[in-house]
Design a protein around this nucleic acid. Structure first.
Lengths: 157, 157
DNA sequence: CGCCGACTAAGCATATTGCGCAGCGGATAC
DNA sequence: GTATCCGCTGCGCAATATGCTTAGTCGGCG
């Protein structure tokens, strides 16, 4: 779904100041409250905005180490491996990618030593042929969406 | 910061039903409103909960293609490359990782053809020696935090 | 034993929400 | 040209939530 300029401003506003409500947003955007409400409903029902879940920082929870693991899977074992990885809390996300029928997953751990435990648990499963892990040192660009929203809103102009 | 069982339940509740307010949360958890308010304040001030930003779906915005690019950087060019990548809206996140002074970034694009444009823009910068890209086909485990929160709350028990 | 921190329960003024209403363009179809 | 539709506005209403304060209770800890 395409978004227009007002949608873009609304999303950016909400991203920057999530605590504000519909009424405050309408004041900031200079439109009627009903308009903001209608736009929000539309954005949510169209799935552009999935929700407003709390943004939890794993490092504040005691998991300061992040890593990405590339997994090589034995043919035909994909579904089993997925189910296995879904049971590991430290697996924050999992993608299947082009390449060699591979998967890429994001892991967190309590320490570098703990990462070993996590990796052992991840790869300790029949069907995973090989895993190569890259530990994250810095995160210069944290997961963001604002620039893309602005781009999309601009395109619709 | 360690979280206790009530913190864990609160976070999970908010993650599952973000629209509920403090009062409703206190009803669901069976505790007083002031308690929920105090817990929330504490979680936020300690950075466990960074905020409640809208969860935007790039594919609904017209960017259905996701890819991960591993970048090899020329020595000493790290800072410049970071600044460059930060200007590309399609770069949703960027990490520096162990390995070969490498970086890993998440990209989105409007189509596979458009991905070529994005990659050209990403690597069209002096300082990037090589890039290898993996296109995401499926996302069996979307970015999640609930299992980790439950784990952390359990550990504190 | 006394203190302290956390939780409960209640109250109050204010702000926000969800909802419906009529009116008003601008764009579109005929 | 004109009828129609759609989105936005501005308003009002009752119901509800918020921010804040107070007082009382309970358990742990030095």
């Amino acid at each position: 779904m395409a978004i227009d300029h007002l949608d873009g401003r609304l999303i950016v506003l909400l991203a920057r100041e999530p605590r504000i409500g519909v009424l405050e947003a309408s004041r900031r955007l200079g439109v009627a409250r009903g308009t903001v409400q209608a736009r929000l409903d539309r954005l949510q029902s169209h799935g552009v905005i999935r929700g407003f879940g709390p943004d939890v920082d794993p490092s504040a929870l005691g998991y300061p180490v992040t890593a990405f693991a590339t997994l090589e899977i034995k043919q035909g074992q994909g579904a089993d491996v997925r189910a296995h990885l879904a049971t590991v809390p430290e697996v924050l996300e999992l993608h299947t990618t082009t390449g060699h029928g591979d998967m890429l997953c994001r892991l967190v751990a309590r320490s570098n030593a703990d990462l070993q435990r996590v990796i052992d648990r991840v790869v300790g499963f029949e069907g995973i042929v090989r895993a190569s892990t890259a530990i994250v040192m810095e995160n210069p660009v944290p997961l963001r969406i604002i620039p893309l929203v602005e781009q999309a809103a601009e395109d619709a102009r």
